[in-house]
Design a protein around this nucleic acid. Structure first.
Lengths: 195, 195
DNA sequence: TCCCTACTAGGGCGATCGCCCTGTACGACT
DNA sequence: AGTCGTACAGGGCGATCGCCCTAGTAGGGA
């Protein structure tokens, strides 16, 4: 059994993590300060350093847990598909909900960038992304895609890249038609196997 | 004829831009301050606001001019190739010089991210990237690649995405073998046109 | 010679930053 | 009832921030 105070403390910790996951995309990683964070979570600034050793460690935990959560959901979605082509279309359809300037996309890119300057964060994120790549690669392998793990890596990277460019306001129209060629021998091209 | 003072001023302005292009990847976009910048350029902090209306505008100009310069060089490199497959291999070979955590890669990602919070910067960068996509797409069209502009967009985005992931320390081994399928009908696959 | 323009140096203002220190409220134990 | 430990509030410290203001310097045109 836990004391009510401990339970409240756990809830406050959770609120701080959620506030961080909101504020990182809103204001950029470096612009999330203890004051802003505490205000969003409805606590006083000193509470931040009570629950976390540093602001960095709070941001690291908030970002990685959100990323792990989202990639797990994406993989579950992919598992419901039956062919690699369907998987790519599903993946890109789910990506269509993101503008590249939305909270989720920005959280990923902010985290990628921050990880180049924080070894702990880099290892955490590398683990999360590697796990997704490995699971997706294994799925592609089971479905007969050649070079499955390399393809999974390129697809994951392309997805991030497409969202990155989409954030610029450049229209990235229907990349699925192009990316589908990664898993099938040019299905709807006019010239087929002339080589 | 220009006065020697004006010429010196122009040189100082150039040094400030170069210092900014160095410091953005080094310390992150938000961490480039007028003091640090001035120190790197060998001038006093107040000089920054003499040559530029604001720190933001300095960073915007530094980032976009570097990006334009680099993409122009990349396109020139692509123009020396003869087939789309060779172009992709050349592009990825040149990307192999980047670790994803190097100055150039980080400058791009930092600029992408900063552009989501600055309309002026977003328009500048969108113009630079759109120009590259357009020129590369026209090249692909001339070489018979289907959906050339979409393919160019996806390739450009994938390139950025691969570098983004590479910065995590995840090995992205030889993505060229995978991306080559974008421009040819699965050249070395075991099963060919069984569909 | 004098002025005028372009460039640079120095200092300062108000604001914000991460983090620390101290004091307090309060339920759980002996 | 008294003690203790956990969770939070408030204030402050030193540092850094972008930007502004003023004074000073140097070379070209009148």
């Amino acid at each position: 059994m836990v004391s009510p105070a401990a339970e409240r403390g756990r809830a406050v910790r959770e609120r701080l993590l959620n506030a961080a996951a909101e504020l990182i995309p809103e204001r950029s990683w470096a612009a999330v300060s203890t004051r802003i964070l505490a205000e969003r979570a409805g606590v006083t600034p000193s509470v931040v350093h009570y629950h976390f050793p540093s602001l960095q460690s709070l941001l690291n935990e908030a970002a990685t847990s959100r990323m792990r959560q989202l990639l797990a959901g994406l993989y579950e979605l992919l598992e419901t598909t039956r062919t690699p082509a369907e998987a790519i279309e599903t993946m890109l359809a789910s990506a269509d909900e993101y503008t590249g300037a939305d909270a989720t996309s920005l959280l990923f890119v902010e985290a990628y960038l921050a990880s180049t300057r924080d070894d702990d964060l880099r290892e955490r994120i590398a683990g999360v992304v590697a796990e997704f790549r490995q699971r997706f690669g294994a799925w592609l392998e089971r479905h007969g895609v050649p070079a499955p793990f390399e393809t999974a890596a390129v697809l994951a990277a392309s997805l991030d890249g497409v969202l990155l460019h989409r954030g610029l306001g450049l229209k990235a129209n229907a990349p699925s038609a192009v990316l589908l060629r990664l898993v099938s021998a040019s299905p709807e091209e006019e010239r087929q196997c002339e080589q």
